[in-house]
Design a protein around this nucleic acid. Structure first.
Lengths: 337, 337
DNA sequence: CCCCGGAATTGGAACGTTCCAATCCTCACG
DNA sequence: CGTGAGGATTGGAACGTTCCAATTCCGGGG
């Protein structure tokens, strides 16, 4: 079968095998495969041919070990079910690919504990940087992580932590945009369905409250969550309280709110206007007015920031606030009567 | 500052450092950190303490190299924007985590070429298995990949390729479910908005056509795509042709179809009934009738199949067909008049 | 004909682990 | 008080690369 020496279970060909077949040293083979200009054309050809015939695949693990670089970034995503995060991830991936980096993805889906575990795993894999697309970590945890590896948090501003950058939308201004829009349409009973007790939700809520105050309107906040169910329940409470317009904490919840209104037989926007927040792509078809954030763009910026920090780990923290804008669609209209 | 010897730029502590600090050999330190029962309690304690104080993190790269196992699977996902794929991914992640595997994720978003490149990258990272959540590879490419590494394809049945498993929904039966449902509601002009020219779309289309024939109805297929835009355009064409019910190739397109109907001033389900396909979570709130596939479940099964094959690379191919079921919701109702 | 310079090539150390085989130690037993 | 068993510990090879320093090769100038 084969004239060669030891040949048990088919082992993956290594650089050594390629070199042997091409009749050169492994050093030269390495050089050639890296495209070094200092290898003679004839040798290069022989080496490339050998690699090809053998179906050689460089082993990144080995390479990473000696180079002390993995060319991989870790991405933690809070919740895959929220299309918003997927869109951000998409931007991250694109930018990472542009810089010739791979992406190691984990989710903390279940609980904060898994979240920590998964991030630890990333650290052990020696990712060169970390992008956290939303998270539930404490500031201490975050600081500890940022001390180990360049880190950027997407979705909310995180300052005061050395070595950590962030990319976020201006939630304060965004919520104001929604209120302004509805007020301009003549609404007075504008309710806010909150996103629960977390940083972003609080920010959006404040934005809403301040804007309402500025318009001389009474605020009406009902508890909700960043989920469809949260929006559903919130919408019920809000209309019970007489609201004619809803500023919902995010798009997912807004979709839930729409469902609640439909169930109640209320028409949108004739009876009640609804404004979401985030700007996920899907909304276009759903005809939902929303405060849009440039999601993929946020992901790209995050990855770029990360690359910069990988280059210069000690540069000061930067916090990028991306612009939000109101996208008026069919779910918001003039106030009734 | 420090009394120790060489201390330039802070280097990551290695096993060596831990061992030194604990006053033992690196071998013993390794043993202890792996939780081997044969290290003396006192030593173990000292080692663990040292590791802790130093902030030691095992280097997976090195470990993988010597163990010849990376404990990582690669996942290729066709399109992150389709929530369906995200839900499958979620299942994959969960199962992988359960088996103590990491996930390396890539997307082929742009074109088939990137797709190949990204998969190659995965192979170089020595992933132990590959899950393809939809793909655009040729059968030869697929076979070549499966030859290198255990592979499972999710979303469509792929047989005849050695070493490759697949998990798919029964599209033929699924499409029939939709037709049966609408026929039972009295619809006769049931149109199908196709998903374009690909395996799944063809399958669903055949299912539709056969079911229509069985009901003695004339088929009406309009071109569409697995996107909202595709659904939008398709719905326009279908209602122009007089359809009172739409079997849409997937949920995303169904959402687009809904938008088109709304734009035309047609009411759902009074004027036109719509049935989607896939069963993404969001639909619940959108009140869209659909042929649901157990998406996360499919992901889990895929990962499990992969684990099995990693254990036994030579076992025969298995093809799992998961059950689809019709989820009736508000977008389908009795035929008009 | 020798020597030199530069291009091409090579050996070997290093990266941080794991794990085998070998050594060391301790103590019970004869 | 020697011996051996068995637990604890250790040295060192190996994994597949990269890259530095060293070596070989070659032809042309002196």
């Amino acid at each position: 079968m084969s004239s060669s020496v030891a040949e048990g279970a088919k082992r993956r060909p290594t650089l050594h095998d390629v070199a042997a077949r091409a009749g050169v040293s492994k050093s030269l083979a390495s050089l050639a495969l890296q495209g070094s200009p200092k290898v003679a054309p004839a040798s290069r050809e022989a080496i490339l041919a050998a690699a090809n015939e053998l179906g050689y695949r460089p082993n990144r693990t080995a390479s990473s070990l000696v180079r002390q670089r993995t060319h991989t970034i870790g991405v933690h995503i809070l919740d895959l079910h929220n299309p918003v995060f997927a869109e951000i991830l998409d931007g991250v991936q694109e930018a990472a690919r542009g810089h010739d980096y791979s992406t190691l993805l984990v989710t903390g889906n279940a609980d904060p504990v898994t979240e920590r575990t998964e991030i630890t795993r990333l650290l052990e894999s020696r990712v060169e940087g970390l992008v956290l697309i939303a998270h539930r970590l404490s500031d201490e945890d975050l600081a500890a992580i940022a001390r180990e590896v360049p880190t950027v948090v997407v979705t909310w501003r995180t300052d005061g932590i050395a070595g950590l950058d962030s990319v976020a939308g201006d939630d304060l201004a965004g919520a104001r945009l929604a209120v302004d829009h509805l007020a301009a349409l003549g609404h007075a009973r504008i309710a806010h369905i909150s996103g629960g007790d977390n940083r972003i939700a609080r920010e959006r809520r404040s934005g809403y409250e301040r804007a309402m105050a500025d318009h001389g309107l009474d605020p009406l906040v009902v508890d909700g969550a960043f989920t469809e169910r949260g929006g559903y329940a919130g919408a019920e409470a809000a209309v019970d309280a007489g609201a004619t317009a809803l500023v919902v904490a995010n798009d997912l919840a807004a979709i839930g709110a729409l469902a609640a209104l439909r169930a109640r037989g209320l028409r949108v926007p004739d009876d009640v206007s609804v404004v979401g927040y985030d700007g996920m792509r899907l909304l276009d078809s759903l005809d939902l007015t929303t405060v849009a954030q440039p999601l993929a763009e946020m992901g790209r910026v995050a990855a770029d920031l990360l690359m910069e920090r990988i280059e210069a780990p000690d540069r000061p923290s930067t916090h990028r606030l991306v612009e939000t804008r109101l996208v008026p669609r069919g779910s918001s209209g003039p106030a009734p009567d």
